[in-house]
Design a protein around this nucleic acid. Sequence first.
DNA 1: GTCTATAGTGGGATAGAC
DNA 2: GTCTATCCCACTATAGAC
Lengths: 227, 227
Amino acid sequence: MTGDPEEATDVTVEATAETDIRARILDASAEAFMRAGYAGTTIDDLAREVGATKGLIYYHFRSKFDVFLAVYAEGMARVRARVEPWSRADGRGAERLAAMARAHLANLMEDLAYHHAIHQGVAGTVSAALRPRQRQDLQELSSLRADYEDMFRAVLQEGLDDGSVRPVDPRLATRTLLCSLNAVDTWFRPQADQPEADVEALAAALVDLVVGGLLPATAPPSPVRPG
Amino acid sequence: MTGDPEEATDVTVEATAETDIRARILDASAEAFMRAGYAGTTIDDLAREVGATKGLIYYHFRSKFDVFLAVYAEGMARVRARVEPWSRADGRGAERLAAMARAHLANLMEDLAYHHAIHQGVAGTVSAALRPRQRQDLQELSSLRADYEDMFRAVLQEGLDDGSVRPVDPRLATRTLLCSLNAVDTWFRPQADQPEADVEALAAALVDLVVGGLLPATAPPSPVRPG
DNA sequence: GTCTATAGTGGGATAGAC
DNA sequence: GTCTATCCCACTATAGAC
């Protein structure tokens, strides 16, 4: 289970100038938010990163917070698109879970800035003083996030059912699994001279660690202790 | 291994009015930072939480950032004091690691607000525009944090040596372990009517999950269990 | 020690030129 | 569509009364 479980139908999306500039703003914003955090980033920072001025940002987005929401949504859409096919692949629960974790990590390392933004959003650091509409938008995104987690939990549950996952609490295990994967964005920073193989090895090791910890173990609890 | 590995010598600290008010400010600040984040919290918020005004805060601390640093330092000191004794207890590596994880979680749930603040500090969300001196202070605290992680890694390494931990990369495993534990502060909120036993059960389940995943597995993928 | 008043400024948001 | 100019508020930090 290493290739792609399904070919993406190559729909040629009409890349209008509008979608193009929006995309560039989102990329730049994600990058800026990662560097200085949401609160520590000014609209001027975003504009400078795009190579434009404030006015441009406000032409395309109503507020700084709306930019954040769009970054969040885009990041979630990307990771989901990459992971979801694996949840419907062949194989036992644990194997599919490992494949999903690999895909999640691959996307995380690729779209590191977007994940960092999502992380902040979930942490709630952002929600200082929000208008009702914005609060509701954030709520909707949170439910996207919850759906994403549900997808993992469902597969983990299948692993419990088919015996490929040792008996654990599915909610807690899923949460912990995702947190372990996501924590990578706090310490992983791509190095210019780092060979692709190293990054893949890191991802493989982490998947092995976290999913491997869920495999059934018959080892005795070993209360030997010569205390 | 459930009791306390060593009695704390009951040094009677002279609680001057000074240390008292400082402590109250720190508690209130940690609480406020958890609610709205560092950037989203104003000095007025802190003051209101203490039941005083801005002037008081600035009498005891040079700046808002200094308050944050003090919260960070206090939180680290508390969790370290609670966990460190277990690292020197009797038993094999895996058992001590589990005891440390339990102690860490117990403190986390107790001093939730402090942990939340530390979490933000590590994430770097705070370091928007710092003066050189403040940047250095934050650096020092980061090294406290690194030392704390080293303590866990050393015990995990002993577990590798004595065979109580399955072969994993110690750096990666330690990081992941701590991240899994710390992630609790993103979703755990104490409920007023929640019995103490529930919280303990939660902690036990999590420790079992994350440390259990590090135990040696001699099992074949064990496809037992009736579908 | 704690409070009130206020100085100073950074930055989100808008209006209007081009 | 993109930029310039500017408004204005919130918030840090300080000065000085009590």
